[in-house]
Write a protein that binds this DNA or RNA. Structure first.
Lengths: 330, 330
DNA sequence: TGAATTTAAGAAAAGCTTTTCGTGAGGTAG
DNA sequence: CTACCTCACGAAAAGCTTTTCTTAAATTCA
């Protein structure tokens, strides 16, 4: 059906070696023959078989990507960044989603091994020793996003979530808040759960609060959990500000406050995390910690490709964040 | 570095052929040898090289996907559906983004050819004869999403946008609207631009309006264009309802109306398209035409895989849609 | 027991490209 | 004119797995 290099060679009246030399521009081919081969290539639309090439070069120009959920805007921005950057280096991506399910994650690793990807970018709520051990006899360059995983052979890239949450909490205090509650993520989520909580904790303690006085509810990053936990908090305590561990929960909280007749930001200020596309257009627009996931994807792709090319790459890369002040705070 | 089947064979004291038979469970191997091979496989974590396999079988179990922008929630849901379905059939996806740029789209096709994907799912604002001709000497099964492209060898899957827009317009009329304006997409976008406009047109004409009386502004699907066009419309005409060609523009319109002191839905009703995740949580929540992109992705993946497996597949698949009535209409 | 099957397993080819190696032609220099 | 070099190009091996073909051994049946 589809042509191979021998067919092209025959059509051009040369050997496969010569065709290969023309395709790869590796010289040592007579101008006249080159013309003839190029003409045949043009006419036939022949494309060299990347499988055969990969077999020889032990290189596929492919990255394996694992994200928990591509329909989450954070991850889709991240993947977009990866894809754009990768393409500029002539790499492609195999995309997989894991729903944070350990078995699926491991399946992806196995598949990546079989398909001989040149590098792997992993993102998930946690990357553990258990994950690591699945990779032990593999030499594929590996990068973890969203977590600081200490290991000689693994690149990790992350924002300093603790510091970001600390800054966010301080911002609320500086805007006059006295009783801040946090609607956080699950604490086993090292980055967006645990670290952000720790930032909230340290800013609160610095303010003179005792750890056991803190108001903290553990959500699952959905709008609904933000809504429900907001309700729960209002039933228990009098508060004047909310720090949510992501924008969805913050939006859920705002919606709840609106439904119950509280004014945002006058009675309760609300702050989110991530700077989701919705944050800007919601009414009121949401003050939040902006994380540039697209940029993160570009950085991640660049780092892993550099690693593939044996360039020097930092083991840990810290991403920037930024407080974006909008109408949900005073 | 990494082991190959010969190494495994040596370690197990058998020939590569026998190892292959064990791996593929193709029988004719003595129980004792099988055990030994399995043990070696287990111990070494050996994974057969998918490139070599692909070379022999002329099959990669990989689909090539083109979408304009993965960070657009519609497409990320679509891709999620594809990925999940594909995985259940033991396929993986190479994801590319095109920004609706013809040259990039063609580059993707070329790359897919080189990488020998088994099938291609294409989504973009338009798939034209020019695209088609790029594929002419290719035998890779091909599917177009979001457009009805008549061609023997191409599967197209789409919603009936014209009918959906017709239904949406009729809904607004039924809720008492007299002067409906449309904020549409570019007309060269066959599906979300042209077809949705035609639906609006036919419902309006059916209502007794003359085509030249219609109020129609052409946006680019962004929030900002919705906002600006809303403003433009208000400056020209008195209207009591808006049909937008997507939710983003509808939201932009609502924001504009709010800023200018109009009450939605009492003074102006607004209706969107797609049922973006934001539609439900916005304030007021948005009445819209729900399209299940996730489901569409699953259907598309199933169709292309069936085609790859030489099963009978409809040339045209029409997707369902649904009117979701919320607070932006009466 | 002898003939006919069945089972097990290895050797080798095929799938496609790149790269090394070798060879012949043509050119340069001494 | 001879020795050496360069250039152009083809043959063949390598990269890894599967599958066909053979063959040898074991089993079955009469």
């Amino acid at each position: 059906m589809s042509l191979n290099i021998k067919d092209i060679a025959k059509l051009a009246g040369v050997s496969p070696a010569t065709v290969s030399r023309v395709i790869n521009n590796s010289g040592n081919v007579n101008e006249e023959n080159k013309e003839r081969v190029l003409k045949v290539l043009e006419e036939t639309g022949y494309k060299p078989n990347a499988l055969a090439r990969g077999l020889i070069h032990k290189k596929t120009n492919t990255l394996g990507i694992v994200v928990p959920d591509i329909s989450n805007i954070n991850f889709s921005e991240f993947v977009k960044g990866i894809e754009n950057q990768a393409r500029s280096y002539d790499y492609n991506i195999i995309l997989t989603t894991s729903e944070n399910n350990f078995n699926k994650e491991v399946e992806c690793f196995e598949m990546f091994k079989e398909k001989r990807v040149d590098g792997i970018i992993f993102s998930g709520t946690r990357f553990t020793e258990k994950h690591k051990s699945e990779l032990d006899n593999s030499t594929i360059p590996f990068l973890v996003f969203g977590q600081n995983f200490e290991h000689e052979k693994i690149i990790s890239i992350n924002i300093n979530n603790q510091k970001a949450a600390y800054d966010a909490t301080k911002l609320l205090f500086s805007k006059g808040a006295k009783n801040i509650a946090m609607i956080g993520g699950p604490l086993w989520d090292r980055a967006a759960g645990y670290d952000r909580f720790m930032g909230f904790l340290s800013a609160s303690v610095e303010r003179g609060l005792k750890p056991n006085e803190l108001i903290y509810e553990e959500g699952d990053f959905t709008i609904k959990s933000g809504y429900n936990l907001m309700k729960a908090i209002l039933n228990k305590k009098k508060i004047d500000a909310i720090l949510a561990a992501n924008d969805f929960m913050a939006l859920g909280a705002i919606k709840c406050l609106a439904d119950l007749g509280y004014s945002v930001p006058n009675e309760v200020q609300v702050m989110g995390f991530d700077d989701n596309i919705i944050a800007e257009i919601y009414n009121p627009s949401l003050t939040t910690v902006k994380i540039n996931f697209y940029e993160a994807g570009k950085i991640a792709a660049k780092a892993i490709i550099d690693k593939i090319n044996k360039l020097k790459v930092d083991k840990y890369i810290e991403l920037k964040y930024e407080l974006v002040i909008r109408k949900s705070t005073i």
